[in-house]
Amino acid sequence: MAIDSFASVMKVLICEDDEMVLKMVEFKLQKEGYEVHLASDGKEALEKVRSVKPDIIITDIMMPYLTGLEIVHQVRKEMGLETPIIIVSSIGLEKTVLEAFQLGADDFITKPFSPNELSVRVKKILMKSA
């Protein structure tokens, strides 16, 4: 796939504590042309949100120090940002999914997930918010 001109200006922040998965998703999205930033725990993720100012955030729920749900809350309420957020989690419990959306997440993908599908969703959400 050729590098997407749309993607090339977009910054994606991926928060995931599994290093292997993190690298995979990074590779995949980089190939699509995004500028990819990584965070391996909740604290780092919030720091990166401040410093990098990503266009979209992809986050796991169960991470060290801060959960993905708290990241959503902090980004929306404390920082007052409208940055789209996609949650990727192995918890598929209805209660958790609803909680994520109520907090202001834009999409919820359950693990195991398809990296191709993730990249399509990222693109769709970015197009919509652009």
């Binding site: 995979m24 195991p112 997930f113 398809s114 990296p115 191709n116």
Partner: peptide
């Protein structure tokens, strides 16, 4: 081990 670990996280073509 690495392949199996990755496989647990992915579906679709990657899997």
């Amino acid at each position: 081990d690495e392949i199996i670990h990755l496989h647990e996280n992915f579906t679709g073509e990657t899997a």
